[in-house]
Design a protein around this nucleic acid. Structure first.
Lengths: 331, 331
DNA sequence: CTGAAAGCGCTTACAG
DNA sequence: CTGAAAGCGCTTACAG
């Protein structure tokens, strides 16, 4: 049985309040009693209960992190790591929850986090959960939404510059002389995907190139899917000379498809991905891609959450995370 | 401000205890009051505070998961996912903590989890933390240790069959005619590494082959390190015809080294990895490796933790997670 | 500089 | 079948 504050008080011959004062480094207290209490705390191995503290202060020193999936794409663990690091730096522990893109489950998990009195939540939304979220956000704050604007006063947003990244990629391909560019479009985060697809269309149009709707394929953003889609795309439309992918997983799948079809990359078919996951650089040929600083994304989102905690009345503007083109061998 | 049990009681015209009874589905209660209270709960959107509940029941419905690192090796997120899934199935939330192999930090994090009254902890230890851990385990339970025996009554162990896996790999290489086999040995989990290195030595000896100490290289189990080590190894000892790696990251590094040195895999140099991470199958050539069912490992560890929670007096035997050889192109 | 009382939101015996 | 009292381990005003 761990020692309580009362045990320490009794043993030190002081009141509970005095122990509380030294534990929290708060209020005036004589150095003598402080040292004495400290010694007793050490002796008994006393550690204050965060649960009891949370009940009265309504601050649990925990946050919740809700993501769709941490295994299929190495992108997410890196983002999570940034958040974990920042949180630990503040002495916070973090609940990690996976939702697998299920909005029902997402809402249920958000509530369960609130039940545990987390001080804030970072959400990487994937599905159409806007309505549910608003109701939840009405009686919970603060909340960070990543890569998805949610119009609610207690939700602050961290956005990826995906439109810019898309433009960089397509500009680059067009600059290399490509006129027949396909897109593997993903279907994970609808609004984000729309931004990328729109960016893709607009950039092609800006260059005076036609947009072939049948060359823009929506799919789950997994390697296998990218492989299958690229294979049938290249078989069906041999005139395609470049592929732009929603993420590196799809791009890596396209790479595999080209290898199998005997299409040289980048000579016969150039490929550009998105994210710059570790394996993008390790692939053969290495992948040209639009880089996102995933760790920094995680850090900034967490830092913003703590800013909101410290200034509850402040309305914070969105944070924009930059994207940049990393040119390697595949395009 | 969220509704409390008192609010519900007042609104429903019953006592707090009655509300508690319907919330916990406990004790006899007339169906009429039950329905009535339920309706008020619904109306007020009442959700019981897990913090208050934890303070009195000493059950927080949370567990802690402590790992070295979730980004450098995709192995760990898969294990974590198994645990998260099982925990969520039980209605538990999980704290995820990274320690980066720092034993000091590891201990500090374990204490911080105990401060939050987690009901149990799963630890994937990497360093020499045995002594610290025993002290901690003396006043905390239950605890699961993965891939590392820790001799303490409140710690239960989940072990990987690494010795068996190592034997499978080396037997296979020897069966293919290899007599000059090097090992990239890793240095992450000392005891586990020793098991693998010992297994390697013993298997060579069992086949009547000499053991070259200078062909067994210890290093941080990262891709870059495997690449560097394999390169210098193959340059220095061209007679080496096969490499067995502590994990797939090292094996993938070795693959890269061979490519760069113009050594064909598997003809000039065979490579066998360990873990069977996703990228093992996707590499060119695809990697022959010793598979661990990572998701199952996570599930079993979590399930064991819940078993311990439900039977605090029971002493559970270690769980052994099987390993099997997956033959692909690299050997 | 130090302490006694009340209370955070629940559950646990104990009565009725 | 239902309720009043005590208490989980802390902190927050309020006194002295």
């Amino acid at each position: 049985v761990p020692a309580t504050m009362r045990d320490v008080a009794r043993q030190a011959g002081v009141s509970i309040k005095t122990v509380s004062r030294v534990v929290n480094n708060q209020g005036e207290i004589s150095e003598a009693t402080r040292q004495h209490v400290l010694a007793v705390i050490e002796e008994l191995g006393f550690r204050p209960s965060q649960v009891a503290r949370a009940l009265v202060t309504r601050r649990s020193h925990t946050i919740g992190l809700v993501m769709s999936d941490i295994t299929n794409n190495p992108f997410f663990p890196e983002v999570a790591r940034g958040m974990l690091d920042v949180a630990r730096g503040k002495g916070f522990n973090v609940f990690l929850c996976e939702v697998f893109g299920n909005p029902q489950r997402e809402l249920e998990i958000l509530h369960s986090l609130a039940d545990h009195a987390v001080d804030g939540i970072i959400l990487y939304p994937t599905y159409h959960s806007q309505d549910n979220l608003s109701t939840f956000a009405d009686h919970y704050r603060p909340l960070i939404s990543i890569n998805r604007f949610i119009d609610h006063p207690s939700i602050s947003t961290v956005m990826l510059e995906t439109t810019k990244g898309t433009k960089l990629a397509v500009d680059y391909l067009v600059g290399k002389g490509h006129q027949s560019i396909a897109m593997l479009a993903g279907n994970g985060a609808p609004l984000d995907e729309i931004r990328r697809v729109q960016g893709f269309r607009q950039t092609l149009t800006a260059h005076g190139l036609p947009v072939h709707d049948e060359w823009i394929i929506a799919m789950s953003p997994q390697l296998e899917e990218g492989y299958e889609a690229a294979k049938s795309l290249l078989n069906q439309y041999p005139q395609i000379t470049a592929i732009f992918a929603y993420n590196d997983l799809l791009a890596l799948g396209a790479l595999q498809a080209c290898r199998e079809l005997g299409r040289r990359v980048p000579e016969d078919c150039a490929i550009v991905g998105f994210d710059d996951i570790l394996w993008a650089a390790k692939a053969t040929p290495s992948l040209t891609t639009v880089r996102i600083d995933k760790y920094d994304l995680g850090c900034q989102a967490a830092q913003r959450l703590f800013d909101m905690l410290n200034a509850p009345e402040t309305v914070f503007p969105p944070i924009y995370i930059d994207t940049e083109l990393v040119i390697r061998e595949s395009a």
